[in-house]
């Protein structure tokens, strides 16, 4: 069976002041349809890099390996085409867009994706209704829709805004890069609910996190440990508990 998301032997590097610095050193990872997988790992191990490469950020050079999404070569697609195909990345550090109204931007994004998927565009009334309802569900103050994208948002507000975008774009693969960091306890639950609401046999999530708490809510099907640009170990949800109790030292020593 060809997996929903299938990553094999993925190597990627970045140009670091003229020298090529390898960051991903052979990532192998399969996420079947309908599953939630977690990635944990020490700081700097390459988790965000993996998420950027999957979303199509151009400054990372893929030097070897493949990433197939629903059987298609994800790495050959433009970032906006990946979004249209159903990939959504919630950024670890959401980007501020001064001068760009949040609601307008969201509508532009939603309609661009709908257009690319051959669906009818939403008019501003329809859109505002949908956006307001989602914002309420995420307990997001409505004025965040009227402000510029992420500008002056608190850390937690930025993360909620990412989840709002995800909910409105309706992806089939959500990559959440530390979306739980910086969230208060209520927000954490709300974000988890946001992901759960999308759960279906045709939706998968890749959840990058440092904390057990989000996983308590989401209950991942698989947990992967990433270090030095590779997946070192994969297991069930119990692996996360083991990490929480023991830290990474044992895994790293074992793999060295």
């Amino acid at each position: 069976m060809s997996a929903f998301l299938s990553i094999a032997g993925l190597h990627a590097s970045i140009d670091d002041n003229g020298t090529r610095k390898p960051i991903l050193n052979g990532v192998d990872l399969d996420v079947p349809a309908g599953e939630v997988h977690a990635i944990m790992g020490p700081n700097g191990s390459g988790k965000s890099t993996l998420s950027y490469v999957l979303a199509g950020r151009e400054d990372y050079e893929v030097t070897a390996g493949t990433a197939l999404f629903k059987g298609e070569d994800l790495l050959a697609m433009e970032p906006d085409a990946r979004a249209a195909a159903g990939v959504f990345l919630a950024f670890q550090a959401p980007v501020e867009l001064p001068g760009v109204n949040n609601a307008n931007f969201l509508r532009t994004a939603v309609n661009a994706v709908r257009r690319a998927r051959g669906e009818a565009e939403m008019d501003s009334m329809q859109f505002l209704k949908a956006a307001r309802a989602q914002a309420r569900a995420l307990s997001m103050p409505e004025d965040l829709l009227k402000r510029n994208v992420n500008v002056g948002f608190s850390g937690g507000e930025k993360k909620r805004n990412e989840v709002l975008q995800m909910a409105l774009l309706g992806p089939s693969l959500a990559i959440l890069d530390e979306t739980d960091s910086g969230l208060d306890i209520d927000a954490l639950r709300i974000v988890a609910e946001g992901v759960k609401a999308l759960r279906s046999p045709s939706f998968s999530a890749l959840v990058i996190t440092h904390h057990q708490r989000l996983l308590d809510y989401l209950v991942p099907d698989r947990v992967h440990v990433m270090a030095r640009g590779r997946i070192l170990r994969s297991g069930g949800p119990e692996l996360a508990h083991q990490l929480e109790a023991q830290g990474y030292a044992g895994f790293l020593a074992e793999a060295a």
Partner: peptide
């Protein structure tokens, strides 16, 4: 570039 990528990752063409 970072802003452009952020927008594109939300489906907005270049």
């Amino acid at each position: 570039e970072e802003q452009l990528f952020y927008m594109r990752s939300r489906g907005v063409p270049l």
